[in-house]
């Protein structure tokens, strides 16, 4: 499969930035169902029974895709379809159990699930986040005010992040991650929680980043956002690609299957929480 994609990219003019080659991802889950308490757990150990507390979840099952400079790709699919896991693999944060992810330059992920340090203030989180992605203290001093302004959280920047509403947290994280134009930007539902005003601002920023950077991946349940800001969409389900193509075509097909009601009622269209 990768050969075909490689040939296509060699003949086409846009530069290939991402190649996901038959990638599988498996989570090790510790915990889960543990019955019978301590005596049962000890008995299982002594009898060398398999521990039911340790299971693995096969979140992504054989995904192959290519992305090119200038593309904004929306990933859609029901909860648990492997969208976020796939983004982590592209960012190099999770190692695939099978297959390889290739990228041109560094991909950076921003997502709501990735809480930074809750006990620390927004200020400290800005500095820490920027330092962690490799900015120097001088660069941070330069960018700091822009980040605070973009996040638009006002005086909350001095309070610990665990006092923030989920929307404010998402805004701050988006502002930090978007401070630097990465080669590949991966956005995991960061926009769904912001208010309308912030959403507009971040959509504008995504367009800017897409021009400066290479490629943007966007995971969202807001199908409206995918239509508006993405050139291409990929529908994932059960860890596999169902459909990959023009964003309107894919979202239409997805809505036909999952969200028939939302198409006839435009008010509910922006939010699809299946």
């Amino acid at each position: 499969m990768s050969e075909i994609l490689t040939d296509a990219s060699a003949s086409a003019s846009p530069e290939q930035t991402v190649l996901v080659d038959d990638v599988h991802l498996t989570y090790r889950v510790i915990g889960g169902s543990r019955r019978g308490g301590a005596p049962a757990a000890l008995r299982r150990m002594l009898l060398r029974e398999e521990n039911p507390g340790q299971r693995s979840v096969h979140a992504v099952r054989g995904v192959t895709l290519s992305a090119f400079r200038g593309e904004a790709i929306g990933l859609i699919g029901p909860n648990g379809s492997g969208k976020s896991t796939l983004l982590r693999a592209i960012a190099g944060l999770m190692a695939p159990s099978q297959g390889v992810v290739w990228t041109r330059g560094q991909a950076s992920l921003l997502g709501v699930s990735a809480a930074m340090m809750g006990a620390m203030s927004g200020e400290q989180n800005i500095v820490l986040g920027c330092l962690a992605i490799g900015m120097s203290p001088a660069e941070i001093a330069e960018e700091y005010q822009a980040i605070v302004d973009f996040a638009g959280i006002g005086d909350f920047v001095h309070l610990p992040m665990n006092t923030y509403s989920s929307g404010m947290g998402a805004r701050l994280r988006f502002a930090i991650a978007a401070a630097r134009a990465p080669d590949i930007l991966l956005i995991d539902e960061a926009l769904a929680t912001g208010d309308a005003q912030f959403r507009r601002r971040s959509e504008k920023r995504i367009l800017e980043l897409r021009e400066q950077a290479g490629t943007v991946f966007l995971v969202s349940h807001g199908l409206g956002i995918i239509r508006e800001s993405c050139t291409r969409a990929i529908w994932l389900e059960g860890g596999q690609i169902i459909l990959d193509g023009d964003s309107n075509t894919v979202v239409d097909a997805y809505e036909d299957k999952h969200d028939r009601g939302a198409r006839t009622a435009p008010a509910a269209k922006a939010k699809d929480r299946s």
Binding site: E15, L19, V101, W102, Q124, L131
Partner: peptide
């Protein structure tokens, strides 16, 4: 498979890794 692509999340050689680590010294301090 395509020139210019790198494997995502690949472990860096130990000397480059150490250099990256040194570049993050401000992060360690903060």
């Amino acid at each position: 498979p395509v020139p210019g692509l790198q494997r995502a999340g690949a472990r860096l050689p130990v000397d480059v890794y150490t250099q990256r680590l040194w570049e993050r010294r401000w992060f360690v301090a903060a």
